[in-house]
Write a protein that binds this DNA or RNA. Structure first.
Length: 935
RNA sequence: GCCCGGAUGGUGGAAUUGGUAGACACGACGGACUUAAAAUCCGUUGGCCCGUAGGGCCGUGCGGGUUCAAGUCCCGCUCCGGGUACCA
């Protein structure tokens, strides 16, 4: 056998492992290149063919860069804290660490089969204490820092303490949790607290009071907030873990609930998270997702005095204060705190009924929204700040409590929702746009000219907007405001299998524990206590137990994954998370490969933590991933059988419509070229043991098929292990790349793999005969073979540089086809050929490299350079077009200039035959490409 | 609704700055080898038309446009996939 892939792959895998081929160290003499895969959560199901797609693509680049002389960091690890292992633990009592360990072993086994160039000595696991020690450390720094908006960076809480002692919080420009501050302030100093406190007020507080005030400034803080509570999972979830009112994992219902939780003040970084997108090379769609998620909008916060309630105001946020003259009512969120105070006795019952109705409608229903217009008048009025006109105050559920101030000024002429609301309740719609028909709907056009708007009449909205903000601010009822949709992230999970917080409570105030690591304690069950405390409350034996009690929550899944790319640089360091020296050398990830589904979670949080660590000077860059590529999903091809209803008879695809049939998924392992192995099907499940079949004319049972998501339940999962067994890892690697553009979703079709396998075999025959002996010669290669080689090197190099993985395989196939035809067996061609094959088929390339007596390992074989001179041909063949249609091919010496080519082609008899006596009006010669004769 | 992708043979796809559309594979069909099958090898393979060589017409979701030349650029649609939403 000339291509014994099993022997070859086993041999070289072992060789690489013994030689430590893939271990890398910092080498200041060389330029670095950092290629990273999003590390996997090791699930119990193992890998299917979709998972390695990105790993193969990044491995190709890692190997290519290494051959180009870069010092390549290409690590892998495991995001090993997470819910599935814990759910399994709840069901079976098996410790999640054991399940996780087993799953990791299985992953590793599967990954090893594929010949990746990972430096496994740098492996990290987020669940190992040596790793999460540093996750805890970062949390502690976030707890000890706040955000100084003036300096646009994180700053120590200790600085704040000194400042408060000296001058209170006057003129402080730090990010602050206003609700937390107001709640603490009013408790400590009474209900007239306005957000400002003096040095003496501060100094009179005890530790407890000061601790409560400081919570409003910390980047990691405790707060009572509305959170997404998922009863089925028994935990809170971050916004990005909730999709359409249900949990991302498991699809369980999620409700809003007020709870005291650890939070992350990611909102402090909102602006930098947006502006940072400009400097990173990510897909536009992911950047857009992040921009939308952060949702920056610029405008003004306006105060409306409430009629008959002296001193009380409603604050609204508006991006369009230029339309202020068109505002004729206010709408508050039903939960707005002012509602109770302003509702008149006559409206009390109606308002209470509406609030109850809104609360009863779950979050999900509100989102799914058959969005009928609903609302209720409170009976109260605000006063228009410019005209003094009374404006009725309504409540309605289209105003969200969580966004802005939870209140809007309604401008029915300028906002479609306000317009619909006004229409529905018969409210007036004051016209403020010249020439706009108010019956047709609202006008959102910023170039519209205002009318009925005092001094602003006659000007365009765009012109008035800055004026409106400035004048309203000067008049004292407004101030410029930038608002974000982004909310602070909940950082607590009421679960067991996560990082324990390095926190204990003394007198209800959280204290950091840093002199010794807090380890995840053992518990007797992975369930909440009878009192509803999280599982950690069951722990009787903590390695450290201090204060009144320990923190019972654990950190969310994204904690460990927010900084793991740094740990790979210095995985064993036990004095810091990563030495500055090493992070300065390896720097940003140059190529990050992973799914696009993490756009609002992992990819945002890791950017946030990176910026924080940058602020602290721990690292020297503030974006983690300089370039990212998102691989598309691989879809499965499902097969179906058709059972006649109420029987155990199965009809072949062609005859399925003759009777009433039921379509059932059938395991694709029993189907080949759509033909079912009926015996295997009978043996599949007991209920099919006595199945009858109605076959087609060829006496076969043909299955139906459909392309859909690859999943166990659809029996369409293709397992990489089986394919490696049948064709070898090199074939699988090439084939996954050959399927099509990496970013696109594409169906998996195993039938095509034989073509790629055949290519590798054909390639092998250039080097070895049927007996496995070398047929390589030291003769000088033919000019044709050299041209083929250099053409292929050029194409492969250029395609890899533009990350066009799929076309590289085609280019190699073309090269091998040509060399086979040419009967090429020369070392001078076959050595470089093995070198450019190496990123795709490393095992075979290593074997052939050694056959061709290449020096050392092909892994370090210098990347060949193409020689332009070898590509030059003496003749050029031009397609000749007449009026845009190709009529014949024209061979001409390559060194002619366009004028000479034109003269030559016009002299050709075929030209006069085409022209039939007409004079050519114009002749276009594109050198080396095409000739077009118009006439 | 909004945002982002996409649509090319029976299938996956190629065509990088506008320059021979369908490379490279799969599948299908025909042939060689074989008692037979598998494997392997060779040939044909976008559609239509005349045909002996060879040649003609049509063709990249649809309708327009720009250009000597359009899968590629512009305008207007259709369909499919993904994301997202009372965000003021």
């Amino acid at each position: 056998m000339e291509y014994d892939f099993k022997a070859i792959e086993t041999k070289w895998r072992q060789h690489w492992q013994e030689q430590g081929t893939y271990a890398v160290t910092e080498d200041l003499q060389k330029d670095k290149y950092y290629v990273l895969d999003m590390f996997p959560y090791p699930s119990g199901a193992g890998l299917h063919v979709g998972h390695p797609l990105g790993y193969i693509a990044s491995d190709v680049i890692a190997r290519y860069k290494r051959q180009q002389g870069y010092n390549v960091l290409h690590p892998q690890g495991y995001d090993s804290f997470g819910l599935p292992a814990e759910q399994y633990a709840i069901q079976t009592g098996q410790h999640p660490a054991i399940t996780t360990e087993r799953n990791i072993a299985r992953y590793r086994q599967q990954l090893d089969l594929l010949g990746f160039s990972y430096d496994w000595s740098r492996e990290v696991r987020t669940s190992s204490p040596e790793y999460y020690r540093w996750t805890q450390w970062i949390f502690a720094r976030l707890f000890e820092h706040g955000y100084d908006n003036g300096a646009s960076k994180a700053a120590p809480i200790a600085d704040l303490v000194a400042r408060f002692a000296a001058q209170g919080n006057a003129d402080l420009n730090w990010s602050v949790g206003e609700e937390t501050l107001m709640a603490a302030g009013t408790t400590l100093w009474g209900s007239d607290f306005d957000g400002q406190f003096t040095a003496s007020q501060w100094n009179d507080l005890g530790d407890k009071g000061q601790g409560e005030i400081l919570m409003a400034y910390r980047l990691a803080y405790l707060a009572d907030s509305e959170v997404n509570w998922c009863p089925a999972l028994g935990t809170v979830l971050a916004n990005d873990e909730v999709i359409g009112g249900r949990s991302e994992r498991g699809g369980h219902p999620v409700v809003r609930k007020k709870m005291r939780q650890w939070m992350m003040r990611i909102t402090a970084y909102a602006d930098r998270l947006i502006s940072g997108l400009e400097h990173i090379d990510w897909s536009d769609s992911i950047k857009e997702v992040q921009r939308n998620w952060i949702g920056k909008s610029t405008g003004a916060q306006l105060k409306f005095a409430v009629q008959h309630h002296a001193g009380r105001t409603v604050e609204v946020f508006s991006t369009r204060p230029d339309t202020l003259y068109g505002a004729n009512f206010l709408v508050l969120a039903p939960e707005h705190e002012l509602v109770a105070d302003i509702t008149t006795p006559e409206q009390k019952d109606a308002v209470a009924a509406y609030q109850a109705e809104t609360a009863a409608r779950s979050e999900r229903e509100r989102m799914a929204g058959d969005r009928g217009v609903t609302g209720c008048f409170t009976g109260g009025h605000a006063l228009h700040p410019l005209t003094g006109a009374p404006m009725p105050i309504w409540i309605a559920d289209y105003v969200l409590a969580g966004y802005g101030t939870g209140a809007v000024m309604a401008v029915p002429a300028g906002d479609q929702r306000d317009w619909e609301f006004a229409r529905h309740f018969g409210l007036e719609i004051p016209p403020i746009f010249e020439g706009h028909d108010i019956e047709s709907g609202a006008c959102g056009d910023k170039s519209a000219i205002l009318c009925n708007s005092g001094d602003w009449s006659g000007l365009s909205c765009a012109e008035v907007l800055p004026k409106a903000i400035a004048e309203s601010t000067a008049a004292g009822f407004a101030e410029p405001r930038v608002n974000y949709r982004l909310r602070d992230a909940v950082f607590s999970r009421q679960r067991y299998w996560g990082e324990p917080f390095p926190i204990c409570y003394v007198d209800g105030i959280p204290q950091l524990i840093e002199d010794e690591q807090v380890l995840l304690p053992e518990v007797d069950a992975y369930l909440p206590t009878e009192d509803g405390d999280p599982p950690l409350a069951r722990a009787s034996q903590w390695n450290i137990s201090r204060g009144d009690r320990m923190e019972f929550n654990t950190m969310p899944g994204w904690a460990g994954s927010s900084w793991y790319f740094l740990r790979y640089m210095d995985p064993k360091n036990d004095t810091s998370l990563c030495s500055r020296e090493k992070s300065d050398y390896w720097g940003q990830v140059d190529l990050y490969m992973g799914g696009a589904e993490h756009g609002t979670g992992h990819l945002l949080y890791s950017r946030f933590w990176t910026k924080f660590l940058f602020d602290l000077g721990i690292i020297g860059f503030d974006e983690p991933f300089a370039k990212m590529v998102n691989q598309g999903m691989i879809l499965g091809r499902s097969s179906f059988v058709y059972r006649v209803e109420g029987t155990n008879t199965f009809v072949t695809f062609e005859r399925r419509k003759a009777q009433r049939t039921q379509r059932l998924h059938v395991d694709i392992s029993m189907v080949r070229n759509d033909i079912l192995d009926t015996e295997a099907f009978k043996a599949w499940r007991p209920e099919f043991a006595d199945a009858q079949f109605e076959l087609n004319e060829d006496g076969e049972y043909r299955c139906g098929s459909e392309v859909e998501k690859m999943s166990k339940s659809k029996y369409n999962v293709e397992n990489p292990d089986d394919l490696v067994e049948r064709y070898g890892a090199d074939t699988l690697r090439c084939y996954e790349m050959f399927l099509g553009p990496l970013e696109q979703a594409k169906p998996w079709d195993t039938q095509g793999i034989s073509g790629v396998h055949g290519f590798l075999r054909k390639l092998t025959r250039l080097y070895l005969n049927a007996e496995g002996q070398s047929v390589i010669t030291d003769n000088a290669p033919s000019p044709e073979a050299e041209r083929t080689l250099h053409k292929t090197i050029k194409k492969v190099t250029e395609d890899l540089d533009r990350l066009s993985w799929n076309t590289v395989v085609s280019a190699l196939m073309i090269g091998v086809n040509e060399l086979t035809e040419q009967g090429c067996h020369e070392r001078a061609v076959l050595q470089p050929l093995a070198a450019i094959l190496a990123p795709y088929a490393p095992h075979l390339a290593e074997e052939l490299w050694s056959t061709a007596q290449g020096a050392g390992s092909v892994v370090d074989a210098p990347w060949p350079k193409w020689d332009g001179n070898k590509l030059v041909e003496s003749e050029v063949r031009y397609p000749v077009q007449f009026n845009g249609k190709v009529r014949f091919q024209f061979e001409v010496a390559a060194d002619l200039n366009p004028k000479e080519v034109e003269a030559a082609v016009l002299a050709d008899p075929r030209t006069s035959a085409q022209l039939e006596g007409r004079e050519p009006r114009k002749v276009i010669v594109v050198p080396g490409r095409i000739i077009n004769i118009v006439g």
